[in-house]
Amino acid sequence: MIEARDTAAVAAQLGREPRGVRRVASRCPCGLPAVIETAPRLPDGTPFPTLFYLTCPKAASAIGTLEGGGVMRDMQDRLAADPSLSAGYTAAHEDYLRRRGAAAREDGVEPLPEGTQSAGGMPERVKCLHALVAHELAVPGINPFGREALDALPEWWRSGPCVAVDPDDAEPEVDR
């Protein structure tokens, strides 16, 4: 269950109404949602494989800067060379699939088909740090590359919340 204030904050963060929100999975140190957990299927039945969705635009921007610096190439190289790291990343992938399947069962909807991707390229590629960081924020200690990326980020929240939410205001202000 998600409160109206959080729904308003997420809508302001995304610039649109969020779809299929189940709950806030992680909060920014400023108190606003940073990651939401979404339903494996949208209300119309459309598959939605992204279980953990990063909503904070300041965090997303910082991650984009990190991605632009080429860190994913190094991660991919280490994934191929380090069996222990590969095992941890595979465990993160399996955790993601397990949680997504549990969410489908809790919602009373058909789970996504076997073989549907998890997120961020898991378990064989490092494709999207936004998804990997969202997973790590939602389930601390599970995603080795999400943790690395999170540790490399600046404290994006220090300058204040990314949006100003007044429960009576239909148009929250966005500070990007």
Rank of each mutant, 00 (worst) to 15 (best):
127 K>F: 13
87 A>S: 12
85 L>I: 05
126 V>C: 04
121 G>E: 11
145 F>Q: 09
128 C>Q: 04
76 Q>F: 04
50 T>M: 06
160 G>Y: 03
106 E>F: 06
46 T>D: 13
144 P>N: 01
76 Q>S: 08
77 D>Y: 09
35 V>W: 06
63 I>W: 06
142 I>W: 14
119 A>I: 12
113 P>S: 07
60 A>C: 15
100 R>H: 03
128 C>G: 10
62 A>P: 13
106 E>K: 12
43 P>C: 05
62 A>R: 10
113 P>G: 07
43 P>K: 01
163 V>G: 05
136 E>I: 00
108 G>L: 00
145 F>T: 02
37 E>V: 07
125 R>L: 15
57 P>D: 00
159 S>K: 14
77 D>N: 13
68 G>K: 07
94 E>V: 08
165 V>N: 05
133 V>L: 06
116 T>E: 07
63 I>P: 07
78 R>W: 02
53 Y>E: 11
138 A>V: 04
45 G>N: 00
133 V>A: 10
65 T>Y: 15
156 W>L: 12
85 L>V: 06
44 D>F: 07
68 G>Y: 07
77 D>F: 10
94 E>N: 12
61 S>Y: 14
107 D>I: 05
87 A>Q: 02
165 V>T: 04
84 S>F: 00
157 W>P: 01
119 A>M: 13
129 L>E: 11
38 T>L: 09
81 A>F: 01
158 R>E: 15
48 F>A: 14
146 G>W: 02
159 S>D: 15
143 N>H: 14
152 A>E: 08
108 G>H: 02
120 G>E: 00
55 T>A: 10
45 G>M: 03
147 R>W: 00
111 P>F: 02
157 W>M: 13
72 M>A: 15
160 G>E: 00
153 L>I: 08
72 M>E: 14
161 P>Y: 02
161 P>M: 09
162 C>T: 10
87 A>F: 01
112 L>A: 02
129 L>F: 11
152 A>P: 06
112 L>N: 06
94 E>M: 10
124 E>T: 12
119 A>E: 11
88 G>T: 04
122 M>G: 00
60 A>V: 15
37 E>A: 11
98 R>T: 04
117 Q>M: 14
161 P>E: 08
128 C>A: 09
37 E>M: 10
162 C>A: 11
97 L>K: 07
94 E>Q: 13
74 D>G: 15
121 G>I: 03
58 K>W: 12
106 E>V: 03
53 Y>L: 03
153 L>H: 07
44 D>L: 01
157 W>S: 11
48 F>P: 13
58 K>H: 15
134 A>C: 08
78 R>A: 09
148 E>G: 08
113 P>V: 08
36 I>S: 03
109 V>T: 01
70 G>R: 03
63 I>G: 05
133 V>K: 12
85 L>G: 04
57 P>H: 11
137 L>F: 04
121 G>Q: 08
86 S>D: 09
43 P>E: 05
82 D>F: 01
144 P>H: 00
98 R>P: 10
87 A>P: 04
76 Q>P: 14
140 P>T: 01
55 T>P: 03
163 V>W: 05
139 V>G: 03
103 A>N: 04
47 P>Q: 04
98 R>E: 12
92 A>Y: 05
